[in-house]
Design a binder for these strands. Structure first.
Length: 402
RNA sequence: CGGGGUGUAGUUCAUCGGUAGAACGCUCGGUUUGGGACCGAGAAGCAGGAGGUUCAAUUCCUCUCACCCCGACCA
């Protein structure tokens, strides 16, 4: 992509409403635009990042048998009344249909997927089943805040698993936990698995928390064994696992996995006929991962005073090609031909300093400068490092493909 | 939802009773080109909205809306 054609360009100052770090940097760099409290447009660069995060999540969900579908964001009110959550789910967006029917904007999808499956699941042969989606969720937060960390509309992956027994559900739960670790490893985002309450879903759950000062959760991390517990469920000063001393850390919850209660399956009569001819209730689990929140958490963790420092796994482009002295077109075409994703700053009449400042702000992992000075070499600098080096195109390609 | 703060040009801010100003950005012309260049010219504003006080309101008062922060809440 040529930067001269990219919408929009960087801003020198973030709007005064952008207070949190992720909001400021993502806005200045042109990744997001706030529409109202907790609601954002994801601009082309921002959407590319969400897409890359989503792709990694998709691959790992698929690798544990997940099948992707998309359920509606607009829900009938009836199933929500059936579970009681029409009134008990305090951040539920409610609206009216044309004929006056109660409707709901989906904050989660048990009320859709259980009735759906109850139509299709008949036999133990239909199970287990793992279905997931990546979709905008809606929660009427009394106080949306911290940029895209806590929105009223946000992109989330939700996986639902359905089993013939709790044992099978528990075994799959372990697999999902492992898949989550793989996802965050590929995203290069450090997380600690944290014991937490299950809310209305289950007695206990496990959260994936990214430790950072801007987090709004407080987790107690054991200095000895590394196990962590959300402060919401313990007053203990000692680790439940090993007795070691605990340290309080602020953290952002980027994922949460629940072994579900049977309540929803019972309400919607999600049952199957087992081998013995008996009707049995399905055992389920649900597993969330905040895609847009993860993007925000990454900015909170990966930045310096000049801008964002994206991990290679999710950067909107692999290479930020800075053309000086009107050069760079040739290299841009070569990158494209080699399957490298370049963002080419082809703008004329702009000082080098301004282009460098933009490159630092946008945070693409490799900056490649082409100018009169570089001659037949390329000047390469990693965003995360200070030093530059002059290399041939060939060795740069090797660097990028390794 | 309680407490606090802020709404003025696209953006950041100034003016704080006498009818609007800068910087950045933008447009045009020219000079520049390795860390947010320079000169000149220009466009750009119902001062969030409604009401009130006043000869006069962006400025003071009331209400309202929006955003931000702290707290409560957070499947």
């Amino acid at each position: 992509m040529k930067y001269s054609l990219t919408f929009p360009k960087t801003l020198k100052k973030a709007p005064s409403g952008a207070q949190s770090l992720n909001h400021q940097l993502l806005t200045k760099a042109g990744f997001i635009h706030q529409e109202m409290a907790g609601v954002y447009t994801y601009l082309p660069l921002g959407w590319k990042v969400l897409d890359k995060i989503s792709d990694i999540v998709r691959e790992e969900m698929n690798s544990i048998g997940g099948q992707e579908l998309v359920m509606p964001a607009l829900h009938p009110g009836e199933p929500w009344k059936k579970t009681g959550r029409f009134n008990s789910f305090d951040v539920l967006f409610k609206l009216k249909g044309a004929a006056g029917a109660d409707l709901v904007l989906g904050p989660t999808h048990e009320e859709i997927i259980y009735p759906l499956l109850s139509e299709y699941i008949q036999s133990y042969k239909d199970l287990p089943l793992y279905l997931y989606q990546i979709q905008m969720k809606f929660r009427n937060e009394p106080r949306a805040k911290a940029g895209i960390l806590r929105g009223r509309e946000f992109l989330m992956k939700d996986l639902y698993s359905f089993h013939t027994s709790d044992d099978d559900r528990d075994a799959y739960y372990q697999k999902v936990r492992e898949a989550y670790f793989k996802i965050f490893k590929r995203l290069e985002l450090p997380v600690v698995k944290t014991k937490a309450s299950g809310g209305t879903f289950s007695d206990l759950s496990e959260e994936f928390q990214t430790i950072t000062p801007s987090g709004e959760d407080i987790v107690l991390v054991c200095k000895d064994c590394g196990s962590a517990t959300n402060r919401e469920i313990t007053e203990d000063k000692k680790c439940l696992d090993c007795g070691g001393s605990l340290k309080e850390e602020k953290a952002i919850e980027v994922g949460n996995i629940f072994p579900l209660k049977r309540a929803y399956a019972e309400v919607f009569d999600l049952s199957f006929t087992d081998k013995d001819g008996q009707k049995k209730i399905v055992s389920a689990g649900c597993y969330g991962l905040g895609i847009s929140r993860t993007m925000g958490a990454m900015v909170e963790v990966f930045h310096d005073d000049k801008g964002i420092i994206w991990p290679e796994s999710v950067a909107p482009f692999q290479v930020h090609l800075v053309g000086l002295d009107g050069l760079g077109e040739k290299e841009y075409k070569l990158f494209l031909a080699e399957g490298i994703e370049p963002l080419f700053d082809d703008r004329l009449n702009l000082s080098a300093g301004e282009k460098f400042a933009d490159a630092d702000l946008i945070g693409i992992p490799y900056r490649v400068v082409v100018s009169k000075k570089t001659q037949d070499k390329l000047e390469v600098k990693k965003r995360s490092e200070k030093q530059t080096q002059f290399v041939s195109l060939q060795s740069l390609l090797e660097m990028l493909k390794s």
